[in-house]
Nucleic acid binder design. Structure first.
Lengths: 208, 208, 208, 208
DNA sequence: AATGAATGAGACTTCATTCAT
DNA sequence: GATGAATGAAGTCTCATTCAT
C-alpha cells in the first residue's frame, strides 16, 4: 500500500498554552472521527473545531494522518491503563474465574467510549494496517505470556496460535457490536457468550 | 455517518460491448483497490485502467462509491456461490463433521483472492458500515437457520446470539490473517483452531 | 540545489480547443513573468489570466515551473528560428563582415521582445540553472563549429574557450541593456561596441 | 516589477550580544542561500539556523528580503575592500600591465567564495534588479574614471560605453564559470582570455 | 531583548463530475 | 454511445509576520 511518511508529532509542547492547543487538536480529531468518520477529517476542519488556526496544527503534526494516529494512541493508552488492574488481579485467580473477570473487564473498558472505539476500528485501517498492527501484536504477546504460565491447565498445546485466536476473536466481537448488525448482543449477553466460548476453547470439560 | 446517496448502477448494459465496458470498470476498480487501497481509487484512474473514458464510467455508475460497491457485491456473490455446495452437503452430515467441512470450505474460499478480500475488509468500511452490514446480517441468518435445525444437539440455547458469535469470529479470524499480524496462522493451523473453538462452543463434550 | 522533478508537459493537446487552452496558458505565463516577475507567477493567477480553470492547467502541466519552462522553450525556439537565416548567410561572407552581420542579427533578435527576454534571464535562473544551461551549451557548440571552419584566419588558438567567451559576453551585454543600468547603450551603440570587441578579439589587427 | 518597501535593517545593534545575533542571522541567510537557493530561505529557517528566535530576527530586519540584501551588501563590501589595493597599484602601472593585474585580481577575488557569489547572482535578481543595479553602476563609475585618466592611450572614444562593456563582460564571464556550462574555463585560462579580450578592445595593436 | 506560539492568507494540487462535440 | 476537455470546490500545507509573555 502506501508507506506513510512519518506520523510522529513534530514537536512536543512544553508551554501550557501549547499543551492546550495540542490537546484541543487531538480532541477535535476524535470528535470528528466519531461524528463523520475519517471522511470528515480534514486539517481545516480539525483546526476549526479545535478553535485553532491551521498553522498551529501543522506546528505540531505533520499531517492529518498523524493526528488520527495520536487519537489512536491516546485511546490505546487509556485502554491499557484501565486493563492493567484487571490483569494483575486475574493472575491470582483460578483459571475459570480469571477468564470470567478478564472478559468482563475488557468488555467494560470497550464500553467506555464505544463510538470512538468503533470509529477507530472501522476507519483507521484505511490508513494502512501497519500502524495498528503493533498494538494487536502487543496484545497477543500479553495473552501469550499469560497462557504459558498456565499451560498445564489448558486444553491447547500451541499457546501462540491460541493467543492469536483469542485476541482476534475478542476484538472482533467487541467491535462487531457497534456495527449496527443484528441482533446486537447486549453487554451481559456478550460477556456470557464470550466467556463460554473462551472457557470451552481453553479448558478441559471437567474444569469449566 | 454519511447517508450515501444511491449506490446502485445507473443502467444495466445489454449490448455485449457495454457489458464489456462495465466489466472492465469493475475489474479496474478491484485492481486499484488491491494495489493502492481506497486512497488510490479515483474515477479518472478507474477509467484509465479500464481503458475507457470517464464519460462512459458515469453512464453506468452514479459515483465512485457505486463502483466500489459493485466490486464488493461481485465478490460477495462469488463467495456465496462457492459456499452453497458446501452448505448443501454439510446438512447431510453429523454435526462435528458438518462443522469441520464448513470451516474448511469457508477458509478455502477466502483464500481464493486474499488481497481483494483484505482490501475490501480494510478499506471499504470507511464508506460507512451501512453498506456491508446487510451481507453480515445475511450470513447470520443462514447460520441461524442451520443452528435451529440442530438445536437439540447443541450446547447453546440462544441460537441467534450463537450465530452472531460464529459469523463474527470466523470473519475476524479470516481477515486477521492478512493483516500481517504475528504469528500469521497458516491455512491448516487456522482450520484446526477454528474447528476446535467452534466445536467446543457448540457441542457438548461427549460428542466432539 | 533542487533537483526539480519533471518539467515536461503532461500531455500534448491535439484537439483544437485543447491547443488553444495550452497556448493561452503559456501566453499568460509569459505575460505575468514580464509584468510581475517570477514572484507574481502562481498557478491560480496563470489560469485566471489565461481565462481557464486551474484544473485545465494541471491537465497539461505538472507544475508552475513546467509552464515557465514552456515559456523559455518557446522563446528559445523563436530565437533559433530567427537566427538560422543570419547564420546561413554569414557563412558565405568574409570574417569581418560575418561578425558584423551576426552581431547585428543577434542584437536585433533580442530586441524583439526585450521584456520577455529580460524576464527570462533575470528570473528563471532561480529555478536552477540546470534547465537553461543546455541552451547555453548549444549556443557554444554552434559558435565553436563556426570558429573551427575559419581557424586559420583567427587570432585565437583555443576555439572552445573563445566560443564560450563570445557566447557569454554577447549574452551578458544583451541582457545587461535591460537592467536599467546606466548608461543603457542604445541599439546602434551596442552593435558598434560588440562588433569592435569581437573583431579585435578574434582577428589579427591587419584584417579588422 | 515590485517596488520593494524598505530593505534597510531596522536598527543597528550596539551591544555585543546583539551584534552577534545580527551576524548570525546574516551568516545563516548566506548559508541557506548557498545550500538551497532563494527558495530555501524563509524567516523561520534563518532564525533556526542562526540559533535565534524569529522574534529577534524581526527586531533587526523588517523582512526576509532585507536579510538577503544584507548578505549581498556584506559580500559587495568584501569585494570592494579586497579590490581597492589592486586598483591603487594598477594606477601606477603602464596600461597593459594594469589590465593584466586588475583582471587577475578580480578573478581571484571572485574565486574566494564562488558558491556565495553564484548564489547571489543567480538567485537575487528575482527580488528585482533595482537593488543590485546600484552596485553595477558604482563599478561602471570606477572603471569609467580609470579609463578617462588614460584616454589618450586608448583605442576607444566613448569611455562610458567602454566602461559599461567591460564591467558587464567581466561580471558575466566570472559568473558564467559557476553555471556548470561547458567547457568551464579554469582560473588561468579565464584570466588569459579575459586579458586578451580587454587588451585588444582597449589598446591599439602596437601597445598590446 | 528575546522568545516562540499563534495566525491566516494564499500557494499548490487533485478529483468527482458535467457537457459539448 | 462514447469521448475527453473543462470545471472549480475543497483539501493540503507553508511561511511571513505579530504579539503576549
Amino acid at each position: 500500500m502506501v508507506p506513510k511518511n512519518d506520523l510522529r508529532p513534530r514537536k512536543v509542547p512544553t508551554q501550557p498554552r501549547a499543551i492546550a492547543t495540542v490537546d484541543a487538536l487531538v480532541e477535535a480529531t476524535a470528535r470528528i472521527l466519531v461524528d463523520d468518520g475519517l471522511h470528515g477529517v480534514s486539517t481545516n476542519r480539525i483546526a476549526e473545531v479545535a478553535g485553532v488556526s491551521v498553522g498551529s496544527l501543522y506546528q505540531y503534526f505533520p499531517s492529518k494522518e498523524a493526528l488520527v494516529m495520536a487519537v489512536v494512541e491516546r485511546h490505546a493508552n487509556n485502554v491499557v491503563t484501565l486493563l492493567s488492574d484487571a490483569f494483575a488481579q486475574a493472575l491470582q485467580e483460578p483459571l475459570p474465574v480469571a477468564i470470567d473477570q478478564l472478559v468482563s473487564a475488557i468488555v467494560d473498558v470497550h464500553d467506555q467510549q464505544p463510538e470512538l472505539q468503533h470509529a477507530i476500528v472501522s476507519q483507521v485501517m484505511t490508513l494502512g494496517v501497519h500502524h495498528t498492527a503493533p498494538m494487536h501484536a502487543r496484545a497477543v504477546d500479553v495473552v501469550h505470556a499469560f497462557l504459558i504460565t498456565r499451560q498445564e491447565d489448558l486444553l491447547v498445546d500451541d499457546c501462540r496460535s491460541a493467543a492469536w485466536m483469542l485476541v482476534t476473536t475478542v476484538m472482533a466481537t467487541l467491535h462487531g457490536r457497534h456495527m449496527g448488525v443484528a441482533p446486537d448482543l447486549g453487554t451481559t449477553s456478550l460477556k456470557v457468550q464470550l466467556t463460554a466460548m473462551i472457557q470451552r476453547y481453553l479448558l478441559p470439560p471437567s474444569s469449566a
